[in-house]
Simulated scan of single mutants.
Amino acid sequence: MRLSNLADYAVVLMSAAARQCGSVPIHAGMLAEQTGIPGPTAQKLVSGLARAGLLVASRGSGGGVRLARPAAAISVADIIEAVEGPIALTSCVSEGRHDCSLEGSCKVQPHWGVVNGAVRGALAQISLASLAAAPKPTFTRPAPALAGDEIRV
């Protein structure tokens, strides 16, 4: 499973917005500059994320975008669904889709809802706040000395 570039960029852009703006508006151009996302793509994402209710946009002097709710209340699943639509690993579970040659005889199709729910549930557990936070340092243990290795103190 792989996210589209647009969904990936949306997560990156929202993470930057969470780090930068809080309740102070920031321009899409500034988010593009900070993230390396091309300006037109950042603008398209900002518009879509605002339509989805994840960002609030204001025009005029002092305008820009800000998070519509606290970063802790926005999940990775929310962001992906704002760009991609409902999280579904196969198209056969979407209502109105009848483009599978196995439709009618597939014994797995009734179970895809459970799989999709599990994936969405896992992504819903990851908050935007956790993505916006500085990464925690990881401790790596030195490799144990092998017999015959010289140890200097």
Results as ranks from 00 to 15, higher is better:
residue 144 P to M: 08
residue 141 R to K: 12
residue 106 C to N: 15
residue 31 L to W: 00
residue 131 L to D: 01
residue 23 S to N: 12
residue 30 M to E: 14
residue 77 A to T: 11
residue 1 M to H: 12
residue 11 V to S: 02
residue 92 C to S: 11
residue 128 L to A: 02
residue 100 C to G: 12
residue 122 A to W: 02
residue 118 A to P: 00
residue 99 D to Q: 11
residue 26 I to Q: 06
residue 142 P to Q: 06
residue 33 E to W: 15
residue 86 P to D: 10
residue 62 G to H: 07
residue 32 A to H: 08
residue 120 R to Y: 01
residue 43 Q to W: 12
residue 86 P to W: 09
residue 121 G to W: 03
residue 136 K to M: 06
residue 141 R to S: 12
residue 150 E to A: 13
residue 96 G to L: 13
residue 47 S to W: 02
residue 57 A to S: 15
residue 59 R to A: 14
residue 93 V to W: 01
residue 51 R to P: 05
residue 48 G to F: 03
residue 67 L to R: 04
residue 139 F to E: 13
residue 11 V to P: 05
residue 125 Q to H: 14
residue 146 L to F: 07
residue 150 E to T: 15
residue 117 G to K: 05
residue 96 G to E: 08
residue 80 I to Y: 03
residue 98 H to C: 10
residue 78 D to T: 06
residue 54 L to Y: 04
residue 102 L to T: 12
residue 93 V to F: 02
residue 57 A to W: 02
residue 31 L to A: 01
residue 112 W to M: 14
residue 64 G to C: 04
residue 10 A to E: 01
residue 40 P to H: 11
residue 104 G to D: 09
residue 152 R to V: 13
residue 37 I to M: 10
residue 101 S to G: 15
residue 120 R to L: 04
residue 79 I to C: 05
residue 126 I to K: 03
residue 128 L to N: 10
residue 17 A to G: 02
residue 86 P to F: 06
residue 80 I to G: 00
residue 12 V to W: 03
residue 8 D to P: 00
residue 69 R to S: 15
